[in-house]
């Protein structure tokens, strides 16, 4: 055990080529998917939180359902759509980083929507009432609302990134964990552990935990700034 950890640390320090490739693919996938999910999810979340219309609660229930969707189910759906028998097979996206990003976006966007909706639902009434009392227009009111959301958007992004980097079920199904192509940290850990090669797995585990630690420190610092 101890020697495995030492070996893992040595591997990280030696900047092993395969390790670097896995880190690169992971970064590409999780950064892109979390940014896309943020760009889609934040406007929807703010809209759902700030407005009242017929069918809103149905949309919220649908979103909560999507938030709870098991990643492997998402992976299965994408696999069926893009595999050799699926309607989108000609796009040849199966086992590429692109389809991994797409599956991740489907998994993460509902989380972004839910996080933003809950927050905006709490602050919007006061923001609106106050703006109306001051005779401010719709555009200015909207910017004031967005201004109240800044920290929430940042911490939501970090949450989305953390989810994306830690996901394994969907990305292994649609990405196939192909070495030097679609292997990310989580899928590589599974793969190498199955092969009995613990060193690379432990090295990746250490890196993942470190990233997660950093993300969570930043989130908690933000939350401290947010708390009134």
């Amino acid at each position: 055990m101890k020697t495995s950890i030492m070996k893992a640390i040595a591997l990280i320090l030696s900047a092993d080529a395969e390790l670097l490739d896995i880190l690169g693919v992971t970064a590409e996938m999780s950064l892109q998917s979390s940014v896309i999910a943020l760009l889609i999810g934040v406007p929807i979340g703010i809209w759902l939180g700030a407005s009242r219309f017929y069918g809103r609660s149905a949309l919220l229930v649908a979103n909560r359902t999507l938030m709870g969707m098991p990643p492997v189910v998402c992976g299965l759906i994408f696999y069926m759509l893009f595999s050799g028998v699926g309607p989108f097979r000609h796009l040849k996206l199966l086992f590429t980083v692109k389809i991994m990003i797409m599956a991740q976006v489907v998994l993460i966007t509902p989380i972004v929507v839910g996080s933003m909706e809950g927050y905006v639902d709490r602050v919007a009434p006061a923001v609106r009432e106050t703006a109306k009392g001051l005779g401010l227009g719709r555009v200015k009111t909207f910017f004031l609302l967005v201004n109240e959301c800044v920290y929430q958007i940042i911490s939501t992004y970090l949450l989305a990134f953390a989810r994306s980097i830690a996901e394994v079920g969907a990305v292994s199904m649609v990405g196939g964990a192909i070495a030097w192509k679609t292997n990310v940290m989580t899928t590589a850990i599974m793969q190498y552990t199955n092969r009995g090669n613990f060193t690379l797995g432990i090295a990746l585990g250490i890196i993942l935990l470190t990233i997660s630690l950093i993300v969570n420190i930043v989130i908690s610092l933000l939350q401290r700034r947010l708390s009134r």
Partner: peptide
């Protein structure tokens, strides 16, 4: 033509 209002519970914008 215009109505100004100060609510019972005041809200300060984050600025």
């Amino acid at each position: 033509a215009s109505v100004g209002y100060m609510p019972q519970k005041n809200f300060a914008y984050r600025m």
